[in-house]
Amino acid sequence: MSKVLVVLETAGGKIRSHCLPGITAGKQIADARGAELHLLVLGANAAAEGAEIAAAGYGAAGVHTITDAALEPFTAEAWGDAVVHAVKTLSPAVVGGTASSALRDCLPRAAAVLDAALCAEIVAVKSGDTFTRPISAGRALLDEQLSGDLVFFTARGSEFAPAEAGAATTAAVIDGASVDVRGAQVLGISKTESSRPALTEASVVVSGGRGMREGANFSHLEQLTDLLGGALGASRAATDAGMVPADLQVGQTGKIVAPNLYIAVAISGAIQHLAGMKGSKTIVAINKDEEAPIFQVADYGLVAKWEDAVPALIAALEARKG
């Protein structure tokens, strides 16, 4: 039976939760093709991690692992080599995973070596070989048909439900990979430490824009965010101005989010920002300019200065909580 192979990332010995929507996309493609879903685990300790992932199954027919110290920390070079080796060993018809920064970095590399087409950031599976993806900052949806014995995809995490654990499956080791970082060296990663949920996984996101004026003012939004148990986001204007770290940026070039509730404060609503949040279930916009384009996508719009509206909103929510 033909195979759909989904590449996973792990951290602390466990599957990273942002990978789960990619498994769902892979499963949908496998079902549309009458193919089997398989999972690929790469890392310095992949065999052990793979065994644990196989115990949770996630609807896969098998888990495959490549263990090599050079696969950690992640580099596109070594991971690209490992994916190429896995493809040569398992001969899948489709390879993909969630469109994380890591897979967006390494999968096109593997696709190029294998001379395969790649459909990026798919949001829907139309058939076994045709996928839908947004283009031009989400203003159009492209149905792209991929031809070839091998094709690649990356799936937008906000558009597929996280895969759930299911019946256990088996894990198998793939030997003989030779992976090479090509002289690249990861010197470090500076993470934005936060006790809040990940921006892409939170059910509530509160974002601030240029109208917040300075970083210190984001403390009001943080208070609102924490009251709602959400994650903090921002527009490019706010991140470029250094008010908040760059990885909070929502939009075409930032994170794509689709929470239950998105609150945009002092954000004008440029198309590049909308591209990252208009899939949200309920959108609230607070802006002092009634002409701001953000109101065109908002379910609830409030024309007000944030200096008045945000403290009032915090007080009202606190009162409700009692």
């Binding site: 580099t75 090509r182 002289g183 990663i189 500076s190 993470k191 770290p245 990885d247």
Partner: peptide
């Protein structure tokens, strides 16, 4: 710019 923050990578 990666999902978790900022990674520094050196390439020859």
């Amino acid at each position: 710019e990666v999902d978790d923050g900022v990674e520094t990578k050196q390439v020859p």
